[in-house]
Amino acid sequence: MNAKTLIIIASFLSTPAHAQGFAGLGTTADGFAVPDPNTQLTFPKDHGAHPDFRIEWWYLTATLKDEQQNPYGVQWTLFRLATSTDDGKGWNTPHIWMGHAAATSETDHVFAERIARGGIGQAGVESAPFSAWIDHWQLAESKETGTYSLHASSAGFSYDLKLLETGPLVLQGQDGYSIKSADGQASHYYSQPHFDAKGHIQFGDKRIPVQGNAWYDREWSSQPLSADQTGWDWFSLRFDTGAKLMGFVLRGEKENFTSGTWISPSGEPTPLAPGAFIAQPLHIHDVQGRTIPTHWQVELPEKDLSVEVKALNPNAWMGTNFSYWEGPVTVTGSHNGAGYLEMTGYE
């Protein structure tokens, strides 16, 4: 689940945050397409945009280390929101684009955002060869098969990474149909969690060579939440064994909904039934006037997994137009590793 969708909707719709699901994500999908469990995802077509749907995103996070094994994280996200089903060209296009980028260390967290209209070429996505961009920020396929480049820069930071695919795409949920609530709201959702990453991060004038791993998510829908869901906690965890876990908790006013996917070292996904993924806060941290759970106990009994997930930098607050917490995490316990955590709705 990518929380950045909420930022676009909250910025351009007037729906109160909790009246129709978190940030309006529970509003009806009048006139827009809705996910269909019988849809078969096809590539490279589905790497591109889906303008019949109201919301979608292209989202990459990376956990990295420098030559001294100091840890870092980067985030790059592009979103598209259709404000109506009307056709339009140029400045009159109904499609709004937003980008978020961040770089995080144990002591620093810097971020930036950009907003654009796709109809004037300022932002967009091409499916083959793949390219997603907003202004000079870009995630793009290289000439060599299975390789990509990633770039973002703003005041105070920048990063450039080369990405190499090392495993297959993962269809989340049931063949890419990911259920988000007991009421049946859903999205189309796939991931590429198998990337080696190498390049550099720059904080101010300090340029740091780094390498590690990256995780890429793609998701689109028109009404992904139910009306009572007030926020979520989303985990992407990579273990030293080579296995991986995506899991999320969608917090409802009456009850929570959890789901996820276990990914074997070879890349074989096992969808998790609602309730199988368990995440409980262990420590609350004060961040920008909010109390945020930055230390968690995560369990998956069917895989004998019980781990502590702890923020690398508890102050990784994204003070964007609609604020949220997102940053790299360490993983210790029955399985060791690293990953990313995204949390919304902590107002």
Score class of each variant (00 low, 15 high):
A3N: 09
I8P: 00
A17M: 11
A19T: 10
F22L: 02
F22M: 03
G26V: 08
G31R: 09
V34F: 07
T42P: 00
P44L: 04
D46L: 02
G48H: 05
F53S: 02
I55E: 09
W57N: 06
W58N: 00
W58H: 01
L60N: 11
A62E: 12
T63Q: 13
Q68N: 14
Q68T: 07
P71W: 02
Y72E: 05
Q75C: 02
L78Q: 08
D86S: 14
D86V: 15
W91C: 00
W91L: 14
W91N: 12
H95Y: 13
A101K: 01
T104G: 04
A112N: 15
A123L: 02
V125C: 09
A128T: 12
A132L: 00
Q138V: 04
E144S: 10
G146V: 06
A155Q: 13
A155P: 01
Y159P: 00
K162G: 07
L171T: 06
L171N: 13
Q172F: 08
Q172E: 14
G176I: 00
Y177M: 03
S178N: 05
I179K: 07
S181F: 02
A182I: 06
D183L: 15
Y189I: 02
H194I: 03
A197K: 03
H200W: 12
I201F: 06
I201D: 06
Q211G: 04
G212S: 14
E219F: 12
S221G: 08
P224H: 15
S236N: 14
F239Q: 06
D240V: 13
T241L: 04
A243L: 10
L245F: 05
E255V: 09
N256H: 13
F257V: 02
S259V: 10
G260K: 01
T261Q: 07
S266A: 14
P274C: 07
G275R: 13
A276P: 00
H283V: 09
I284S: 10
H285P: 00
Q288L: 03
R290A: 14
T294G: 05
H295R: 09
W296T: 01
Q297D: 12
V298L: 09
E299L: 15
L300G: 11
E308K: 14
A311M: 02
T320K: 03
Y324R: 03
W325A: 04
G327S: 07
S334E: 04
G345S: 08
E347C: 03
